[in-house]
Nucleic acid binder design. Structure first.
Lengths: 156, 156
DNA sequence: CCGTTTACTTGACTCGTTCAAGAATGCACG
DNA sequence: CGTGCATTCTTGAACGAGTCAAGTAAACGG
């Protein structure tokens, strides 16, 4: 059982109760960036076999609301979560296999960009998703060697 | 009934068959940016009362695959569609009411940004979503006057 | 006009996520 | 170091956007 004292501190710092499901979820996410709810559930059950899926949903929502985890939801993917927060980094997403990689923000702190025209909006964050093909998929294209630009699903 | 000859040309230009559901969907989207599938369905039924929801799903998929419409899917929202394509513009989304506004790309043509580190990805597009509060919501905050930065739900 | 291909209708179904009610647990306070 | 209350977790049902599948209708090239 790895030390989870820092996780406990993180929870207390966010005024959240310290529970085993919450510690487990944080610990899982620490070792598995961009995990889906389902993946989190499975990994958590390796440690706490009895947790309900609802508990994981609740925990992820609480942690997200508290700012301890970030929820990302790229086109066509289910929700994914990561513990890397507060640095406003961005994501590279592979159109073919769905792999996600982190990219440091090119500009600085949030909002790292400001829109050309803000239409009266008060902007607090710029979310950037870079779409393309990961190294493996661009080396061995699945079906069409050309036409990378086509919004093809890789979702099947 | 407005002239739809240009829409017909657009379909033919994309090597798509010209059908009434397709013309209607394009026409609806032309007048209603960022409409959800359901909104498109309703608006289309004002003209063609008998279209099935499946037809609208199929049409939207075909048009998206052909590049005639763009699909956007901000956090917590269902899929939305727009006919403005080819200029790689971005979106402002209100965290509170969900309103979406278009913003011209600050930089240039796609991919308007390049990631600091590409992790071997071949990037073809940078999708940017500016999160904040629209003019109305920032003037009359729903619940919390402060703490705009908090990842608060406005999703309901 | 005819036949083939592609699109649409109908209706059932999947899957991620949420709702609701009750049992269990964390934790502030005495 | 109990005890009580609020919060969280369990259980199980429900919801809704989107998809699948089989059959009918409509484009459009010949």
């Amino acid at each position: 059982m790895p030390p989870t004292e820092d996780l406990e501190l993180a929870l207390r710092g966010a005024a959240l109760r310290v529970t085993r499901p919450r510690l487990a979820v944080l610990d899982v996410l620490r070792g598995h960036a961009h995990a889906t709810t389902d993946e989190v559930l499975n990994d958590v059950r390796d440690r706490l076999p009895e947790v309900s899926h609802q508990a994981v949903y609740d925990v992820l929502r609480a942690l997200t609301a508290a700012g301890l985890v970030r929820r990302i939801e790229p086109q066509g993917s289910v929700a994914r979560y990561e513990v890397r927060v507060g640095d406003n980094h961005h994501h590279l997403v592979c159109r073919s296999c769905g792999t996600i990689a982190d990219v440091d923000c090119a500009v600085g702190s949030a909002p790292c960009l400001t829109p050309a025209e803000d239409h009266g909006f008060v902007v607090d964050e710029a979310e950037v998703i870079y779409w393309g093909l990961c190294r493996a998929c661009s080396a061995a294209p699945p079906v069409l060697p050309t036409l990378v630009t086509t919004p093809e699903r890789g979702t099947r």
